[in-house]
């Protein structure tokens, strides 16, 4: 065999051995093939008439779910990293203990309770869900940012200042890259929690993968529950794998 063909083959082999890839393909297959799985559900749940959730396609549900999670996580990342940077600067040092305590205490609040509190304050639908998810998700990011930025060795800071870095360059080129693994870990926790909470947000009127689950539960139709549950579980597992891959990339750099 020619060496480049062998290399390509072994690369393909490595590619195929990534469980994340297979899980992702499984997710895509579940999203698109679920409507044709009627026979399977008929075999599993013989007495129900309407077995495939049809208020929205599974693609629409997945995209709405991802949108909810992505927007809230982006806002949370901006707020969490921003506040973390502020609390580790000279001017914000004084706020560090109270911000840290807030992040720790806030994370003991169950995400469902935060979602529930957002409804009286902001009403029904996607916006309150978005706000609750963002608010909650900011806390682990904030904690990761403070831990990461505080852990930057003084020698690295001094060296950067020594070669004439401005405070912004110091932050952007030294401190943030060194803190990145901790920030990423916080973001990962945040996103995984958000995927779970977004499922529950459908009880407050936001469209998500929780919509078929909740409708199945209230109408005693287990097929809907299984359909939504499988896709939601696969989505969460795939995203978690994605973060695994990202943190490996970060380590290699």
């Amino acid at each position: 065999m020619r060496p480049d063909a062998a290399a390509a083959l072994s690369a393909a082999g490595r590619f195929a051995r990534r469980p994340g890839l297979w899980l992702f393909l499984l997710l895509v297959a579940a999203i698109f093939l679920m409507p044709s799985a009627g026979i399977l559900f008929h075999a599993l749940f013989p007495d129900d008439r309407h077995l495939i959730y049809s208020r929205a396609t599974f693609l629409e549900l997945t995209l709405a779910h991802c949108q909810l999670v992505a927007l809230s996580s982006l806002a949370a990342a901006a707020a969490g990293i921003g506040l973390g940077v502020f609390a580790t600067r000279e001017s914000g040092r004084e706020f560090a203990p109270v911000v840290r305590a807030m992040a720790a205490i806030g994370q003991t609040f169950p995400p469902v309770a935060v979602l529930a509190l957002a409804i009286p304050a902001l009403g029904y639908g996607a916006p309150p869900a978005l706000a609750a998810l963002a608010l909650y998700a900011a806390l682990p990011v904030l904690e990761g940012s403070i831990t990461g930025l505080d852990g930057v060795p003084a020698s690295a800071r001094d060296a950067a200042r020594g070669i004439g870095f401005s405070p912004f360059e110091l932050l952007w080129r030294i401190e943030l890259p060194l803190a990145a693994p901790f920030i990423l870990a916080g973001l990962r926790t945040a996103v995984i929690i958000n995927i779970g909470t977004a499922t529950i947000a459908s009880s407050a009127g936001a469209l998500s993968l929780g919509s078929p689950i909740l409708e199945g539960l209230s109408a005693a139709n287990p097929a809907y529950v299984v359909e939504g549950g499988i896709i939601a579980a696969l989505l969460a597992i795939c995203v978690d794998r994605g973060f695994d891959w990202l943190s490996e990339l970060l380590k290699q750099k």
């Binding site: 749940f45 779970g196 499922t199 929780g210 909740l214 529950v225 549950g229 499988i230 579980a233 978690d240």
Partner: peptide, 14 residues
């Protein structure tokens, strides 16, 4: 741990 709670509840029911 990553599976959304309500999905796991639902998948255990059947």
């Amino acid at each position: 741990q990553t599976i959304p709670s309500i999905a796991l509840f639902g998948l255990l029911m059947a």
